[in-house]
Design a binder for these strands. Structure first.
Length: 518
RNA sequence: GGCAGGGUAGCUCAGCCGGUUAGAGCACGGCACUCAUAAUGCCGGGGUCGCGGGUUCGAGUCCCGCCCCUGCUACCA
């Protein structure tokens, strides 16, 4: 029991939300909901990264101001997150005044506490006018930018503020070594350690070339006013969202976990902690790096034409099955594939047949055999086996071994299978035909109802709507989200009035095997 | 190129410090059952454990070489 501040990467306002964005939000949402089930005071942050050249450029192309452009995109993300039942508590936008003020305060704080960490330096590099950015050696072939081979790279020199990241190599190495949970999975931590081994280079903290951003709080020595560069603008959102530097930010900061994609590991595990250390502020407790959703093994990318419409995926079976599928099929510590075939298999096997049908058969039997009231019964071996699974479920969800959401779902389905096996073995339908077996029948139905009630709670972080639907169908009090995991082994639905509703996960005629065979 | 991880049934994967007939889920086949969304349960078929050497009484499990895949190798927000 305590506060739990969870964040996701802020999304760049240069397009619509896609499945990659959705995967991260859905995973973080499951973690947030899990913590609410534990009784934690959860604060779940999502947001938009709205500054930078690309946004300004896009806006210019459309004859809009950058602000108009981002004002148009942010609501589209928010609508999608609502649709996906993402239970965020706060939606931050880097164009908010409080964020901009917070960024400047953070930078000033570094100037105050470690004045040597910022210094002016001329940055020389090959600048591609096509990309409007400096190019690294790997992106240059025959002296030309690989993306714009017809343009000539310009040798450009720019004077900027630099941040002394190199100073923090040893600090970060100790952080990763002494607090291995800080950065997970292990593979990501090892990559960052090897990066530190290679030696960290200082990074620029301001830029002259674009104005759509936060004015850097200190002018250069010649008086030139520059704009805060990406790291110092985007990363602090997690801190500025708490109100920093206003009093009270410490009620929330530090974040308990930053949930991010593997492409931005370095920013969150190297640059961000170094910035905070330079400002002498507490570091986040952990950074969790998830993998990517591939589409049939291919990376989703606009250029390669590999894309999957979120709308289409949601429309297929609804929001909850989509959430379930992503979190079950794509391991949260690595990459995984989305395929329609797999989605249909999972929906049919796990949701319609195993889980949905379990709910259906149990509720029907209670209606038929005990008049719709859940009978009373003592805990049995099944409850003990479920309790053991519950412990595994918690350890897969609480971050202690990483956020293994796919693992948690696998464990829940062990319980689903156990319930179906139990029903088959006990055969309440047979018991119902023998008046002398009445007590036995009630024990069995009570057991099945307990199992189902627990399942609806366990499944709720992943499928909040369906979990609530089942909870209501069982006649449970309040809402499923108000239940507590620590009370789950004592959860007793005896006396609840069940109501059989429509199938939880209807099997669709056109996906049934019978119709696919001609 | 360097560093890291991986290549195990049709598919997705488990197999810790080497030890009897290599496991799970899905898919597939058969049987049972009827409470249920033609759902469920039980049984079964199916694997040269990337390739080639080596160590060992014994190797997916250790060592060497090779092939293939993935990630990282820093200024894109």
């Amino acid at each position: 029991m305590g506060k739990f501040y969870i964040t996701t990467a802020i999304d760049y306002a240069n397009g619509d939300p896609h499945i990659g964005h959705a995967y991260e939000k859905i995973g973080a949402d499951a973690i947030a909901r899990f913590h609410r089930l534990r009784g934690d005071d959860v604060h779940f942050l999502i947001g938009m990264d709205e500054h930078g050249q690309t946004v300004a450029q896009k806006a210019a192309e459309r004859g809009l101001t950058p602000q108009q452009q981002v004002d148009e995109i942010a609501p589209r993300f928010q609508e999608m997150w609502s649709r996906l039942e993402i239970s965020y508590d706060q939606f931050i936008r880097t164009t908010e005044d409080t964020h901009k003020a917070g960024v400047r305060a953070l930078i000033k704080r570094i100037f105050d506490n470690n004045p040597d960490d910022f210094y002016e330096k001329s940055y020389r590099g090959l600048y591609c006018v096509g990309c409007e950015s400096f190019k690294q050696a790997a992106e240059i072939v025959d002296g030309r930018c690989v993306l714009h081979p017809t343009r000539v790279l310009e040798q450009v020199e720019e004077r900027n503020w630099f941040f002394r990241l190199s100073k923090y190599g040893e600090f970060l190495r100790r952080l990763f070594t002494e607090r291995p949970e800080f950065l997970q999975p292990d593979s990501r931590r090892n990559e960052m350690l090897s990066l530190i081994d290679q030696g960290l280079e200082d990074i620029s903290a301001s830029r002259a070339r674009f104005a759509w951003g936060v004015p850097f709080p200190a002018p250069l020595s010649d008086g030139e006013q520059q704009t805060t560069y990406v790291w110092f603008d985007a990363l602090p959102n997690y801190l500025t969202a708490t109100g920093f530097p206003a009093k009270g930010y410490r009620d929330r900061w530090p974040a308990d976990v930053h949930v991010i994609g593997k492409d931005i590991t370095r920013f969150h595990s190297i640059i961000w902690p170094a910035m905070l250390q330079a400002a002498e502020l507490p570091l986040p407790r952990r950074v969790w790096v998830h993998g990517f959703v591939l589409f049939g093994g291919e990376k989703l990318s606009k250029t390669a034409g590999v894309r999957l419409e979120l709308d289409e995926a949601i429309a297929r079976f609804g929001v909850d099955p989509f959430r379930y599928f992503l979190l079950r099929e794509v391991p949260f510590d690595g990459d995984g594939s989305f395929t329609w075939e797999r989605f249909e298999d999972r929906y049919g096997a796990d949701l319609a047949n195993a889980f949905g049908n379990l709910a259906s058969r149990v509720i029907t039997m209670i209606e038929k055999y005990t008049g719709g009231t859940v009978p009373a019964g003592q805990a049995n071996d099944i409850d003990r086996a479920d309790a053991s699974d519950l412990a595994d479920y918690i350890s897969a969800m609480d971050g202690s071994r990483g956020y293994l959401l796919h693992e948690a779902l696998r464990i829940v389905w062990k319980s689903v299978t156990r319930a179906n096996e139990y029903a088959q073995q006990q055969q309440p339908w047979t018991l119902s035909k023998q008046p002398e077996s009445r007590a036995e029948l009630e024990r069995v139905l009570a057991s099945l109802a307990r199992q189902l009630a627990r399942l609806s709670v366990l499944v709720s972080p992943f499928m909040p709507l369906k979990a609530q639907e089942l909870w209501e169908s069982l006649g449970g009090p309040d809402s499923v989200s108000e239940q507590r995991l620590d009370a789950l082994t004592r959860l007793d639905p005896a006396g609840w009035r069940v109501t059989k509703g429509p199938a939880l996960f209807p099997r669709e005629p056109h996906t049934a095997k019978a119709s696919s065979a001609i």
